[in-house]
Design a protein around this nucleic acid. Structure first.
Length: 493
DNA sequence: AAAAAAC
């Protein structure tokens, strides 16, 4: 079976041959002929299966005929992360080099100017993350009624990330008569519902998730105390033949800490997480791909899809909270038949998370010990519960990780907002932990701020005395019970 | 226990 047999054009086949690929992967062999026939696809597959080429190759041929009008893309590919979107655009560049296709990449963290210019020229292929795409749409820079092919990639991840409302909004802007390719690594009910809504008589393609069985990945679990993780990691990095590795941390903060620590100890390490600027993210990923940086400390931005050829190792500095993420993380190694190793550091109370992982990979992860490191065992569920209880009763005075703000902890603290520092000496220690109630900092819990009553002239934005005086003591919506502070006349500007 | 994504 070759790419020619799948019905692809000589131009595309040549471009594929140039990159060195000769044999289609199972998902490519199944999907490409169907996509070329114009059929909808429901693909159950993750990256590493050749899924991306499974849709880019036939799309290049389908879009070869016809021209895009300004601001009216002819196809749309939605990706959950910026890196994935960038990767898909590289795919189109690589395989579309003998075909004349125009393309635009709409992702956040990048200036609008160039993206708008590209849209104005007209694009055959539009690759986007949902937020930035909607942003362009709302600015009126883009029209979606000419989209003939829609690709929704990594749908389950979009769900995890809360993008589904955005995706539904975007799909509602597309013409109903179109071809839709829908990919997801897993098919929870919510994703199935979406697939049913978006697809018409789709061809279902399921590709075995080889990383779940992970025959080519040797796995190991090391149980240590939190503070022993970094030395243990260094020891492991030195004893293993690490060609290149990703080290996953659960928190961005720890990504920075571990990255810094490794660099300090002379490792060729770099960091990658979503709080970095887009240019720093791109630069780091490129350095890692090029081998300039051999150890990448990363958050789960890098857990899925990031396609770095032949990683020798994956380390989980923390046990991932969602078992699925474990599969995705270690799926970065042992790909395409190469051998890989995956080591996971667990704390003794990570019992539940480890059990969940072993449940979905359907086998135990071998426990390892490290010389010179105190290797422990996972606690039983009862022990974890007891430990939690104990810790609640005697809260830590100072946070060993150094992350707490100076005013946190159980010490008596001055109240804020008073001139004299008032210490809470008169309360029992256990109650002293209770902080005075403050407005929630969580942006989702924060009550929506009501629009202030407009005392300003709409045109001049000047305060309007007349209006304010007219208003009298009543405030709309409060009847006769108007809180005193709302009746205060704002200072004249 | 987190991370990801729009300004």
């Amino acid at each position: 079976m070759s790419f020619v047999d799948l019905g692809l054009s000589p131009e595309v086949v040549q471009a594929v041959t140039d990159t060195g690929y000769t044999t289609p992967t199972p998902i490519q062999a199944q999907a490409i002929p169907q996509v070329l026939m114009g059929r909808d696809i429901l693909g159950c597959a993750q990256t590493g299966t050749g899924k991306t080429a499974g849709f880019t190759l036939p799309m290049i041929d389908i879009l070869a005929n016809g021209r895009a009008r300004a601001r009216m893309p002819r196809s749309l590919i939605l990706e959950p992360t910026r890196e994935l979107a960038a990767q898909v655009s590289e795919n189109f560049e690589k395989y579309g080099k003998y075909s004349k296709l125009s393309m635009a990449l709409l992702i956040g963290g990048v200036a609008f100017g160039d993206q708008e210019k590209a849209l104005d020229r007209g694009v055959d292929v539009l690759i986007a993350t949902p937020g930035r795409l909607l942003d362009h749409f709302e600015r009126g820079r883009i029209l979606l009624n000419d989209v003939k092919i829609l690709v929704i990639d990594e749908a389950d991840r979009m769900l995890d990330m809360g993008f589904i409302p955005d995706v539904e909004k975007i799909v509602s802007l597309l013409p109903p008569l179109r071809q839709t390719l829908f990919f997801s690594a897993t098919m929870p009910p919510e994703i199935k519902r979406l697939a049913d809504a978006f697809l018409q008589n789709p061809k279902e393609i399921t590709v075995a998730r080889q990383s779940t069985t992970a025959e080519t990945v040797e796995q190991g679990l090391i149980v240590v105390e939190d503070e022993d993780k970094r030395p243990a990691l260094r020891q492991l990095l030195r004893s293993e033949e690490v060609r290149n590795a990703i080290i996953f941390c659960n928190r961005k903060r720890d990504v920075d800490i571990v990255g810094k620590s490794l660099k300090k100890h002379g490792f060729n390490a770099g960091v990658l997480h979503g709080d970095m600027t887009q240019s720093a993210r791109t630069e780091m990923l490129e350095k890692f791909k090029a081998g300039e940086v051999t150890i990448l400390v990363a958050s789960d931005v890098a857990a899925r899809g990031i396609d770095v050829a032949m990683l020798s190792h994956v380390f989980n500095f923390d046990v991932p909270i969602h078992a699925e993420d474990y599969v995705h993380r270690i799926g970065r190694t042992g790909r395409a038949g190469n051998l890989g190793k995956a080591f996971t550091f667990a704390k003794p109370d990570d019992t539940k998370f480890v059990a969940a992982i072993e449940g979905i990979i359907n086998k135990p992860i071998p426990r390892l010990t490290l010389e010179g490191t105190e290797t422990l065992e996972l606690l039983s569920d009862e022990e974890v519960a007891a430990e939690r209880k104990r810790r609640r009763r005697a809260p830590k005075r100072d946070d060993a990780r150094g992350t707490s703000k100076p005013d946190a902890g159980g010490q008596p603290q001055p109240f804020h907002g008073t001139k004299a520092a008032v210490h809470r000496r008169d309360v029992a220690p256990s109650e002293a932990v209770e902080r005075p109630e403050r407005p929630s900092r969580d942006r989702f819990e924060r009550p929506r701020r009501e629009r202030e009553p407009s005392f300003r002239d709409r045109d001049t934005d000047r305060p309007r005395r007349d209006r304010r005086d007219d208003l009298g003591p009543s405030v709309l919506g409060f009847g006769d019970h108007v809180p005193a502070f709302m009746l205060r006349v704002p200072p004249a500007a």
